[in-house]
Amino acid sequence: MYKILFGILFGVFLTLSVTFLWRTYWLRDYVSNLPKIEKISDTSKIAIQQSIMQIKLSSANFDEKFISINKRLDDFLVFGGIIITLLLAITVSVYLKTESEVNKHFEEKFGDHIKRMADYEKEAGILLGKIKTSLFKIESANFIPDQQTTQSETENEQSTTNG
């Protein structure tokens, strides 16, 4: 029993001693550029802290400026969009209003004249249609008699010249 306990203790001691030796001597041979942890003085600590603070401040300032520029750009785009939309709406409304006003004005001032002209046009068209149809009917009715009359006229002329 004692032998086993001594054996375990010896094994532990051996493992620890080998580890210590490996870290102190052999590890440095393999990793030559390990940073050496030096003791930092208080003044340098303060300087480092100050520089870190300055870096943080400057980055904060930059972030703030960046955010504010973004906000201004957003405002510009939003207001620009609103202004353009309003301008378009005004233009369309003015156009529609003008169109309706012009139509109203024309109907008020010249509606009677236009109506009268349209009525005259229509009346003239009706008369033209009637004339055309009558002519068509007369021409189609007199087509054969016309030929007959022309033939009889030529025969009469020939007989008079001969006789």
Partner: peptide
């Protein structure tokens, strides 16, 4: 309007 009247005239005739 003239054409419209014209056809109307033709139909009535």
């Amino acid at each position: 309007n003239l054409s419209e009247g014209f056809i109307l005239g033709i139909i009535t005739e």
